Amino acid sequence: MVRLPLSPAEVERGQRLGALLRRARGSRSMLDTALDAGVSPETLRKIESGRVATPAFPTIAAIAAVLDLSLDAVWAEIDQPEHADDDRSARRRLVS
């Protein structure tokens, strides 16, 4: 199966996801977190580094559960474009 290249937005979202998981993991070891979530440490490392920008939903759900993160909170944080304020301002101008 051939995977299509990721869009810049998908790459950015993957980087935000990785940063969120690293922050949530805090001082907890990557090995313990990965094993508790039932994923390989290599998979967690790739997600946290942004190398896997679009991980499978069950993988993220398992990691989020181990880190006591709600999936709603995860999505709310990673689905924010870096320039969200600029986008909102532009939309307001269009609506006005």
Rank of each mutant, 00 (worst) to 15 (best):
E12C: 04
S27H: 06
D86V: 15
E82N: 13
A64E: 08
I47P: 00
S96I: 13
I60D: 10
P58C: 07
T59P: 05
E77L: 10
S7D: 06
G50H: 07
P8Y: 02
V66M: 11
V95H: 10
L6C: 02
P58E: 05
A62M: 03
V52M: 12
P5N: 03
L17S: 02
R92V: 15
A61P: 03
S89L: 15
W75I: 15
T54H: 02
E42H: 10
D72P: 02
A61D: 13
P55H: 05
R93H: 10
S70P: 08
G26R: 04
I63E: 01
A73V: 10
L17G: 00
T33E: 02
E42V: 13
E82L: 14
A90Y: 12
R23K: 08
D86F: 12
A53V: 07
R93Q: 13
L67S: 11
R13M: 09
L6F: 03
L35S: 00
T54K: 08
V52T: 15
M1K: 04
A90I: 10
E48K: 09
M1R: 08
S40W: 03
E12A: 14
A73Q: 13
A37L: 06
Q80H: 12
F57W: 14
V2G: 00
L69R: 03
P5H: 02
L31Y: 13
L44T: 01
